[in-house]
Design a protein around this nucleic acid. Sequence first.
DNA 1: CGACCCTTTGAAAGGAATCAACTTATGTGG
DNA 2: CCACATAAGTTGATTCCTTTCAAAGGGTCG
Lengths: 254, 254
Amino acid sequence: MSEGGVAEADALQPPRSEAAGLLARRLLASNRLEARDVALIETLAFDVQDHPARATILAEGGRPTRCVLVMRGVASRQQLTRDGAQQIHSVHIVGEVPDLLSLHLKRMDHSLHTLSPCRLAFVRCAELWDACKTSPSLTAALWRETLVDAAIQRTSILRISRLAAAERVAHFLCEMLLRFESVGAAPDRRFVLDMTQQDIGDVLALSFVSVNRALRELRERGLASMERRVVTILERAGLAECAQFDPTYLHMGE
Amino acid sequence: MSEGGVAEADALQPPRSEAAGLLARRLLASNRLEARDVALIETLAFDVQDHPARATILAEGGRPTRCVLVMRGVASRQQLTRDGAQQIHSVHIVGEVPDLLSLHLKRMDHSLHTLSPCRLAFVRCAELWDACKTSPSLTAALWRETLVDAAIQRTSILRISRLAAAERVAHFLCEMLLRFESVGAAPDRRFVLDMTQQDIGDVLALSFVSVNRALRELRERGLASMERRVVTILERAGLAECAQFDPTYLHMGE
DNA sequence: CGACCCTTTGAAAGGAATCAACTTATGTGG
DNA sequence: CCACATAAGTTGATTCCTTTCAAAGGGTCG
């Protein structure tokens, strides 16, 4: 299918751009990319921008022409209801592309925001799609990203609809621990989750008051604690047990 | 990119198999497929099977090798919790492929069931993916299907987390009306939704008792009624208003 | 005809939301 | 350096919606 060999994450050439490197590294974590796929990614023109917290990157109803790669900070996809309540559908950390769906859908049915100050890299959708058209393996990798994203959303449904308040928070912390670990950002089971308790409530369909009580409960039970936006997982197995957490849906490592 | 012209739904040759015809027709509703894409779909080997209601098509944790096209009936993707509660993530009607994700994910993180008696067509994942590799436009169409599916799930999150019981039911009925209409199966705003009130509750994270009360409320308000699994939308605008329904997320018609 | 599943309705219980008050950080400017 | 403003976190008391429990009615199919 290709004359290039299979690329190993550790054998990467120093990437021309940090953004390309982040994207390549992420895709390599779960996909077999050829060396020429990595080269292809490095030909993409990324436009790097810093955004403050609570900025709108892409509004609902908009017609995006560029995809966004998160290089730093936490971004979210969200939607407002008539009465002003806000639902955060997903949060995105370094290396993720929250709006890959822009490749094939014309209108945004939700909006894209920063929760914390973020560094973002923009690529033209057309450019990314052109790259896909020349490489089935790159297509598979990006398509797969959108499918894992959907799996995370499915699990979000289960979490919101079937777990009690404290269990929901525990489940969310379990997920974020794994996701931060997968990018090497959770040494000692400790990571910076740069969002407020209100934000967490908007993810889990809880009031910030309930989030606060749930965090206290998890702290008192010695499972996890969060202070100043730093999460510490104290007892990993106990937290997972409490949350009925099964990491299959993250489809990590193959 | 191709020597063939753009295919029109109405100008289709009589398909060799009903399954291929259903799939082609569905994809053509929102995508520009070339004539050769339709031909490509018709070369796929579909294995048609009838299944009774409440059958497991694909179990959680399984490693699927075939994708499923629904030809008749209602299928669902669902997950169980430790305490036996069941969450239905999505329901699928004629023409839909509930498990396109099998193309790129190795393990099922949820299960696939029939809610009503179903006629299903199975295609080998590898065969479908090979077809994709020869046609960017077919790839785009199928990829898009998975993205719309994800959008529907996102909206499910919003529906469950932010709407009251009766509004949830109203929203679900609005969605199903549009989806049935898009395949010509809802004349006079009336369609067969072959699932029990318990099933609807499992979709909307409500007890069957609450679903029943919600249906009564919608009936008394003259918005919609459901009897013997036949749904009649009495006042479309009023129902949509009650549900805060915005069909953008279905991404119908391009 | 009777068994079973589904639907319908009432009454009681429970968990989270809301309301309200207070504390703790963070940052600004006088 | 401190007074002040603002945002975020903490905690208690009350309200409300949905669940759960319970029981009866209706359709369908062997």
